[in-house]
Design a protein around this nucleic acid. Structure first.
Lengths: 236, 236
DNA sequence: GTTGACGAGTGTACGGCGTACACCTACCGT
DNA sequence: ACGGTAGGTGTACGCCGTACACTCGTCAAC
């Protein structure tokens, strides 16, 4: 039974187990509080044990991104380019919203992991088979930016929140400055949320901007736009 | 002369001096290498001296953002809304490109500093006086997101770069996967840059997407769009 | 059955970080 | 002349990532 306790005492560590544990730990305590030491403790293991499975914390973060990206649904076949891209991006968004840290981590990676690259490849493919030139596809990908991964880049995160002290004072109810901000914030009116990003329907805002861009792409595609003219797409 | 050496030995610390020193230090060594200790050393002072002028590192970063935002040119008067907004955003971009860390820092602030708020207020004002409803202005601001501050959110930064080791292998020249990525990367062809974001004309990409959005806004404004319909702006 | 290599997990230690807290000291208004 | 105060100091604590040397269980080869 000694062997049994030993055998049962812990399932052996795996790169995969480490990454998944890191993901749920980051979900729980936030990405900035995630440390190798806490992760090791969560796994009932000494910190250095992790380094047998990931080279360093950077690679841990890379792996965590891949776990999340792996949750994106595969592309659907047989649809026009716009709805195909739209569905895929909204699926990516669905995968990312559950992990509020993912967007920030993805941005700080200095290059795409293979899983991300594969995802990008599939999106590019949708444009190309949808009749987009390489040129226009290229610029469309840039224009989408992080929106392609399903997260809009709001100016401020407004997500973590559990530490609202030492902030530079509520800008909300003080002096009568920022009249336009106040007007806009008042009109949004949901709850008492922050200036922008809180009390708003994030999903609607995301689709609003996404569709604005996709419609713009479609318009440029129809008129055979090319960057050679360098008009920048301006219509005025 | 003892007093003279003492007097001349150092100009007294100031919140402003601290912030400006932090900005140039971050410009030099990168934001992730910026520490209170290094900043103090740069100022010829003991680390704790800084805390007489900033409450903590978070507030230091807040202050650094305000310094950069302070470099944005004031708005120009008497122009149609679109070129006014366009000029202001491109000016913000000009202010931010010199400080490659600024975008990342702004994103990690949990709320807008007064200077940022003032800037946002002026942009909102441009939409409103340009004939936009509060509603459409609101969604336009969301759609602009961080682009309003002059930085596009590329998927990956590709900016720091001085530490290209321990990265998960060049995705460029290995197996024949990612055919679309390869096609696109090949077409861009400038240098040997990374998959996306390197070897591209960032300024062009920025204006391309910005104009796509501004044109979209204008179109919606003309047709009296309102979110009540919740069409999301789709045209198809 | 013994052995020896090997890989997973351990223990200790180092240097760097942010910052709490007590202290000193030069200056200034009274 | 003096007491308060604001700015700069020194020490120390607990956290971080991780280098490096180690133990120990497993398993293949003999």
């Amino acid at each position: 039974m000694a062997e049994q306790t030993k055998a049962a005492r812990r399932t052996p560590l795996t790169r995969d187990r480490v990454l998944r544990a890191a993901v749920v730990l980051a979900d729980d305590i936030g990405i900035e509080a995630l440390s190798m030491r806490k992760l090791a403790q969560e796994l009932g293991v000494v910190p250095m044990a992790l380094y047998k499975h990931v080279a360093n914390k950077e690679q841990l973060l890379d792996g965590m991104v891949d776990v999340v990206v792996g949750e994106i649904e595969p592309p659907v076949a047989g649809a026009d380019w716009k709805s195909a891209v739209r569905r895929r991006i909204l699926s990516a968004r669905r995968a990312l919203v559950g992990h509020s840290w993912a967007a920030q981590v993805i941005r700080t990676r200095s290059g795409p992991t293979p899983a991300v690259l594969a995802y990008m490849d599939s999106v590019i493919g949708m444009f190309r088979t949808g009749g987009f030139s390489v040129d226009l596809t290229h610029h469309a990908m840039h224009a989408l930016g992080s929106r392609m991964m399903g997260f809009t880049q709001e100016l401020f995160d407004a997500s973590p929140g559990p530490d609202p002290r030492t902030r530079p004072a509520r800008p909300q109810e003080d002096a009568g400055e920022y009249p336009y901000v106040r007007e806009l914030a008042g009109a949004v009116a949901h709850d008492e949320g922050s200036v922008v990003g809180q009390g708003c329907d994030d999903q609607f805002e995301f689709e609003f901007a996404l569709d604005l861009l996709l419609d713009g792409f479609e318009r440029l595609r129809r008129q055979g736009w090319s960057s050679a003219g360098r008009s920048g797409g301006r219509t005025t």
